[in-house]
């Protein structure tokens, strides 16, 4: 029993906060303002957004753990370069393995996989968290921030795909626009602007507004 007391439990209150915080009070996209670029660009379809989220979560967890393991031997002066090399190597390995064994997935993913390297969430979390924390905490931080990022992508792509193309995950919900059935028979039209990046800015801004309005802690004095 004495051992348990010394060792922090795997899901202590502190560790749970590592996962839950990025989902609300410390969301990487809306509060830390990281990873905005891909939240704008890859949210046209929910399917693509999901795939991107899963890929980012995977790279973020593995990258965080690797950097955390090396945190005591990385020379401080080249730490950013080391982080970049770790992330880039991971992404290339994922891409190559997909191309060889899951070719169909690699074709849908190829555009996104390259984008992961430049996703600021990853570098941001490596620099801000993994360099100063133990591997397990870093893994949880990666998972939490990845999920927080995925959550925003999910919400943005939901509205973009619904109003831009009238579909969700490729399934038509408003009827067939080409055939003019369902809502389209009553004169409803898809909004082309919703498919373009500017609409994501508007949606992300509304999310930030709602979040800050509901949570006084986040309001600036």
């Amino acid at each position: 029993m004495s051992e348990v007391k010394v060792k922090e439990p795997l899901f202590s209150a502190k560790n749970k906060k590592l996962i839950s915080d990025p989902l609300s009070d410390d969301n990487p996209v809306t509060i830390q303002v990281l990873g905005i670029c891909s939240a704008l660009a890859v949210t046209v379809q929910m399917k693509g957004a999901m795939v991107m989220s899963v890929a980012v979560i995977a790279v973020l967890i593995i990258g965080n753990v690797l950097v955390s393991l090396m945190r005591n031997i990385i020379p401080p002066r080249i730490r950013i370069i080391v982080q970049l090399v770790v992330v880039a190597a991971l992404v290339i390995i994922v891409d190559q393995v997909l191309q060889a064994f899951v070719y169909d997935a690699s074709k849908t993913l190829s555009v996104f996989v390259g984008l992961i390297i430049t996703n600021c969430i990853i570098m941001g979390r490596l620099e801000a968290f993994a360099l100063g924390n133990k591997p397990w905490a870093s893994a949880l931080d990666g998972l939490g921030n990845g999920l927080g990022y995925g959550l925003i992508l999910f919400i943005v792509s939901f509205f973009k795909e619904l109003f831009g193309a009238g579909t969700l995950f490729g399934i038509q919900v408003f009827g067939d626009s080409a055939e003019g059935t369902g809502l389209y028979a009553m004169g409803y039209e898809n909004n082309g602007m919703m498919l373009l990046p500017p609409s994501s800015l508007v949606i992300v801004a509304i999310i930030i507004w709602v979040q800050k309005a509901r949570n006084p802690k986040l309001q600036e004095a």
Binding site: A89, I92, I93, Q96, V97, Q99, A100, F101, Y103
Partner: peptide, 16 residues
């Protein structure tokens, strides 16, 4: 690692 991986996976990628 990357060079090895690239060479080892090339035949499978080419076949695809």
């Amino acid at each position: 690692t990357l060079a090895y991986l690239s060479t080892a996976l090339k035949p499978a990628q080419q076949a695809n």
